[in-house]
Design a binder for these strands. Structure first.
Lengths: 351, 351
DNA sequence: AGAAAAACTTGGAGCGCTCCAAAGATTGCC
DNA sequence: GGCAATCTTTGGAGCGCTCCAAGTTTTTCT
């Protein structure tokens, strides 16, 4: 653990009596160095404890980083990438592509203030950006001229993007519940800023719920349409917004709206929270209340009861995103299909 | 998307009529540039589409990467870090520390051939290395003079390391089952190389099971001792080795050793696999067979039946590892306690 | 043996940036 | 107004490496 400076290519060259260039070749293109010279250089390197070219120099020269960067969306943290069922599966997909390409996966979260500067400074060859419609972020990524892919966000035709048909999915969920006879519903939406749950009472003329991200608005629109088909005005439906992992979501819903018979959510994570709270209170799901998730995470298939949800291939989406980014090529916009998976958390409405 | 070269500090300086140094200051130490000059420089930067210093140059100069590297152990992939219940919680702990320190988390997996060269080339300020006793890897990390922490591995006093008391945990598991009256047991161990399950028959004089990593051997030793206390020779106990996620583990056990009444495993992941197979076959757990996991992942508390397991604070371990790495300081070796959490997957032995 | 061909080495020219000592400009004060 | 003190700006010196054109040595062939 001496704090002596690390030896450099030049030091090794000096000891072995060859030039920097030759030492560099020994490590990077050994075939074009004569065997005896190569051995001499390797011996010198070993003697100095030189273990190969410093990556900083290599990278400065203009090389690739061989890494792809991932920034969690909105207020999510890096920890959430291992904690949120959705992000976890998404990351699994991305990492499958990384494993194949033998690329490093860098999880980056700038200081809240400046995600743009985090993008500017990241040592990666490209980005996958979560649902963060933030135009500034996109601009920043474009400035660096690095390839990137935007997930679940409005993005122009000059940008790679992948999203699911959120409106269609929400529509299916609402129709499903309407067909089961539910008339008193609640929506559990996502609060995109930190803070406690926000409750939007029905028939509150001042309520403004369209402040979420594109992602959320699109789903709300699907719910609205599905409800409208059944003759229900979304203005009559209570909407609660909670941050994604918020454990109190279920409590707020059951406390404030005890006569609701069905809850539509924006994510499986939220739906599972509701299920947990129902168990705690002895509320029968789906006997008393039906719950629909969103995303189709594998967690949702392991709950009791198993979750009815609007599913899509999250792993496949992540993998595709990483592959698109790694492949380069002209920008593409992809919309992935969703599917209503009816399992055991929904049932005909009680009276 | 023009392919024109990116502008540099010097280009901006030229346009603004100031030196490189001043432009650098505008971006890094704005307080020591006069306001009007700063504005001129910022205008020039905007005009050229210069978005701040290229990280490569910065880093070459000797700066930090502000990133910590994590390499999955053995044959695990980056994808496993999002897939294995154990690794996932470990990574969660590590990422909590990264979020706090606003550091990037780089998941690195060199080509199988050369994890050492991946270490050599990683753009990080330090490493957390999983249970990979690989002395070569440690040497390689030491060569780079970067701080690092080794998890679950034999490591000398000059290296940071954190491990759990695996022997003690295995001992508790074995005693627990012995107290429940189990006499016909099987061990589900970990195969550290790719490939199908390996079955070690009881009383096979040629069998050699001590080829695993230190981690595995230590646990086996605990099992051995616990069994010995109950008068059972480990040589009489079948041992099956499977790769961590191998779904066939349960099938092999139930097919080959139908009269076993208890199964001790090396991880919750494996134990859950066994539970799944039992459901598939209609085998009653714990009525017919008791199963003990290892690790104490949160998955284990959500299975049906809930898993009895040797638990430790995985998240805390990861967080501590990252903090140790980030803090620097003299090397420490930490052994974390384990605890037998008795839940519903173990019961008195049937006759 | 001698010339041409092949194999191998060399060292200069950056890559883009930060630091720093020193030069230059400005301000404050009597 | 003059001088010291303070504030700004400058440009050289690397950081460690890779590429490449040019030079040198070795091999091959007649």
């Amino acid at each position: 653990m001496s704090s002596k400076k690390m030896p450099t290519l030049a030091d090794v060259g000096r000891l072995a009596g060859v030039s920097r260039g030759t030492v560099s070749n020994v490590f990077n293109h050994p075939h074009l160095v004569r065997a005896d010279v190569r051995e001499r250089v390797e011996a010198a390197a070993k003697e100095l404890g030189y273990d190969g070219p410093d990556p900083r120099g290599r990278v400065l020269h203009g090389g690739k980083f061989n890494a792809i960067g991932c920034m969690p969306p909105g207020d999510y943290t890096i920890a959430d990438m291992f904690r949120s069922p959705y992000l976890r599966e998404l990351m699994l997909g991305i990492s499958l592509a990384c494993d194949e390409a033998e690329a490093t996966l860098s999880l980056i979260k700038g200081s809240n203030a400046s995600r743009t500067s985090a993008i500017r400074e990241a040592l990666v060859d490209g980005f996958i950006l979560g649902h963060s419609a933030d135009i500034e972020l996109i601009t920043s990524a474009q400035r660096r001229r690095l390839p990137f892919v935007i997930l679940e966000s409005e993005a122009g035709p000059d940008v790679n993007s992948i999203r699911i048909d959120g409106r269609g999915g929400a529509l299916m969920a609402a129709r499903h519940l309407a067909e089961l006879g539910h008339r008193r519903l609640a929506i559990l939406s996502v609060r995109r800023t930190a803070g406690p749950p926000i409750v939007h009472m029905p028939n509150d003329p001042t309520r403004s719920i369209a402040e979420g991200s594109h992602l959320d608005n699109e789903r709300l629109e699907g719910f609205r349409q599905g409800l409208a088909e059944a003759g229900i005005a979304i203005a009559d439906v209570p909407i609660v917004e909670t941050t994604p992992g918020e454990p109190a979501a279920g409590a707020v819903l059951f406390d404030r709206f005890p006569d609701v018979t069905a809850i539509m959510t924006m994510s499986d994570w939220q739906a599972i929270t509701v299920l947990d709270e129902a168990v705690r209170r002895g509320i029968d799901i789906p006997g008393a209340v039906s719950v629909v998730g969103f995303d189709g995470t594998s967690e949702g298939s392991r709950t009791t009861p198993q979750l009815t949800t609007v599913a899509h291939d999250i792993v496949g989406k992540g993998k595709l995103a990483a592959e698109m980014m790694l492949a380069g090529g002209p920008p593409r916009q992809i919309v992935m299909p969703v599917e209503l998976v009816v399992r055991a958390s929904t049932a005909p409405a009680r009276l």
